[in-house]
Design a protein around this nucleic acid. Structure first.
Length: 292
DNA sequence: CACTTGACCTGTCCGC
DNA sequence: TGCGGACAGGTCAAGT
C-alpha cells in the first residue's frame, strides 16, 4: 500500500516521536519478516538510542546509536504506529484512525522504549520486512544499489527523468513508472494520477510519447507526490501514519478509485477501471486515448 | 536483454 | 448465510 508520500508521512511522524528514546525490549513472532538473530537484537537493538528516521524510496531507516539501523519496508499493508507512554498520540476523531487497541492480530513486531512508549510494526499480509543492519551497510543492500533517484530531489530534473524513461522505449509507460530502478517511490496510485494529469494512456509505449508530454508527466508526478505528502498520504484500507491516523489525499484524487465517477475535466465522461501491466488502472477514456 | 507473469500472504467483497 | 473466486496500494523470481 504505502508509496513514497505515505512512507514520507510515516517518516515525518516518527521523526517527531522517536529520536532520543532508548529501546528497552523487543518482541516478535515473525522469523520471515524479521529474521535477525536474537543475539544481534540483544547486542545492537536493546539499549540503543534512536538517533533519527530517514527514507529512501519506499524504505524507512531508523538509525541507532549502536551504529546499526532498522531498515523497514511496509510493502502493501505495513503500518508503523507509535503509542506514547500515556496512550495514542494525536487522538482526534475516531474516523481519523484505522487502528484500534494495539497490539492487534496484525502486529508482527513490538519495540518498547525505556519510557514505556511503544512502536508497533503491523502487517496484515506479511509482505513487509524489517532488518537490523550495520548502518554503514544499509546503502549496500540489493534494493538500494538498484533503486532510481528520488523524484522530489531538488537536483532531479525533467532531463534526468526523460533520459531514464527513454531507456525503456518498448515498455508500457505505467510499467516503467512503477519500476523502482527507473524512478524511486512511484506506486499504483501516483502512476495513475500523474498519467491522467499528463493526459497519457498508461498502456502507451514510451517510444510513442513525445518529449513535451514526458516533461508534463515529470511535472505532474512531482506535483501529485508533493500534494499527497501535504495531505498525509492516501488511506484506502490499511494505511495510517505514525499516530494511527488516515491520510486524506484520496479525496483529492482525480482517477484513482473513482471508476464510474465523472472525469474532473470531462463531466460527461466517466472514469473507467481496466488492467494495465497487471495492475488495476484508472483512466478517463476521453483525455487518455488508448493506443492503437 | 527487455518485458510479462505469477508468487508471496491475509482479508474482504461480490456473485451465485 | 455460505462458498468460491477475484482482487488489494509492492517487489522478486522465473518465464517467454
Amino acid at each position: 500500500m504505502p508509496e513514497l508520500p505515505e512512507v514520507e508521512t510515516v517518516r515525518i511522524g516518527l521523526s517527531r516521536f522517536l529520536p532520543g528514546r532508548v529501546i528497552a525490549s523487543e518482541t516478535h513472532d515473525w522469523p520471515k519478516g524479521f529474521p535477525n538473530a536474537d543475539a544481534d537484537v540483544q547486542e545492537f537493538l536493546i539499549g540503543a538510542e534512536i538517533l533519527g528516521v530517514k527514507r529512501r524510496a519506499k524504505v524507512l531507516i531508523i538509525e541507532l546509536s549502536s551504529n546499526y539501523s532498522l531498515v523497514i519496508h511496509l510493502k502493501m499493508t505495513g503500518q508503523l504506529v507509535y503509542v506514547g507512554e500515556g496512550g495514542r498520540f494525536g487522538a482526534g476523531h475516531p474516523s481519523d484512525s484505522l487502528v484500534g487497541q494495539l497490539p492487534d492480530t496484525s502486529t508482527r513486531v513490538t519495540l518498547t522504549c525505556t519510557d514505556g512508549s511503544r512502536l508497533f510494526f503491523n502487517d496484515q499480509r506479511k509482505f513487509g520486512w524489517m532488518r537490523l543492519l550495520p548502518t554503514a551497510e544499509v546503502p549496500n543492500i540489493d534494493f538500494f544499489k538498484k533503486v532510481g533517484p528520488e523524484p522530489l530531489a531538488d537536483d532531479f530534473t525533467a532531463d534526468d527523468f526523460r533520459e531514464r524513461i527513454r531507456k525503456r522505449p518498448n515498455g508500457l509507460i505505467k510499467a516503467v513508472l512503477l519500476d523502482q530502478t527507473v524512478v524511486a517511490g512511484v506506486g499504483n496510485i501516483y502512476a495513475d494520477e500523474s498519467l491522467w494529469g499528463a493526459k497519457i494512456h498508461p498502456a502507451e509505449r514510451v517510444r510513442n510519447i513525445g518529449d513535451s508530454k514526458l516533461n508534463t508527466l515529470f511535472n505532474e508526478l512531482r506535483a501529485v507526490l508533493q500534494l499527497s505528502i501535504d495531505k498525509g498520504g492516501s488511506s484506502d484500507k490499511n494505511y495510517v501514519d505514525a499516530e494511527g491516523k488516515r491520510g486524506s489525499y484520496l479525496s483529492f484524487a482525480n482517477v484513482f478509485r473513482r471508476e464510474g465517477k465523472p472525469c474532473p475535466r470531462h463531466p460527461d465522461t466517466n472514469i473507467i477501471k481496466t488492467r494495465v501491466a497487471g495492475r488495476g488502472t484508472h483512466t478517463c477514456p476521453k483525455c487518455q486515448k488508448e493506443p492503437a
